[in-house]
Amino acid sequence: MIMTRHTISVLVNNQPGVLQRVAGLFGRRGFNIESITVGESEEQGLSRMVIVTIGDDKTLEQVTKQLYKLIDVINVVNLSSHPMVARELALIKINAKPERRPEVLGIVETFRAAVVDIGPDTLIVQVVGDSDKIDAMVELLKPYGIRKLTRTGATAMIRGSID
């Protein structure tokens, strides 16, 4: 049984309780959700969930079939079976006394990130990219002292003209 990372797009009616039912289905199947993002879609009244999970292909197939049985689920697409673009956003608050800021700003520039807040002894850095990019930046900032870290989870779509 080969466990792989799957990114799934689920188009749903924008109704109370849909997120809970979808997440519950994953839990009952023994799938851990690594990240889930939900927001409006291109169609009014519909939301898109992008779920990142790890599991084998057979279990993913069963989860997909079960998702379609939920009344508010319109469409399910395994994005990771196609070339796709995936991005996360992270906000990282780090210790940064004025004398250490030039070093930190060098890292920020290298990652094409941005400083979005400056405090007397801290900086908040915003970085957008794939999970590996964010993980790499976090590792480089650890020696400065990360005070808080928050990540959005992935959002993704298929490249090119395929919907």
Rank of each mutant, 00 (worst) to 15 (best):
E99Y: 12
N95Y: 02
N78C: 06
L67Y: 05
L149S: 09
Y144E: 04
S161T: 13
T155N: 10
F111D: 05
P120W: 12
G119S: 13
K69T: 01
T150F: 11
L140R: 15
F111W: 09
G119M: 03
N95V: 04
T155P: 03
E40M: 03
D130T: 07
T122E: 12
L60P: 15
S81R: 11
E34K: 05
D56N: 13
V52R: 09
G45F: 08
M157H: 09
K142S: 10
M137K: 12
P16W: 06
T110R: 15
A86I: 06
P98K: 13
G39Y: 10
M157V: 13
M1Q: 08
D132M: 12
N78L: 04
T122F: 14
L141F: 15
F111Y: 15
I162N: 11
V18R: 00
T110M: 11
V128W: 14
I33V: 10
K148I: 05
R87N: 11
T59V: 10
I74Q: 05
G153T: 14
G27E: 01
A136Y: 13
R151S: 03
P16K: 10
P102D: 07
A114V: 08
V10W: 00
N32R: 06
A156F: 03
K69G: 00
G160E: 01
D135S: 15
V85S: 14
E42L: 08
M49D: 11
I36S: 05
G153L: 11
K133H: 12
V52M: 06
T64G: 01
A136E: 15
M84F: 09
R112S: 14
E61Q: 13
E42I: 02
Q66V: 01
G39K: 05
G129Q: 12
Q66H: 10
V63D: 04
G106S: 10
S80A: 04
I71S: 05
V76Y: 03
R159L: 06
N14I: 01
I8V: 05
G55A: 08
P120H: 14
N32Y: 03
L19F: 05
V108W: 11
T122M: 07
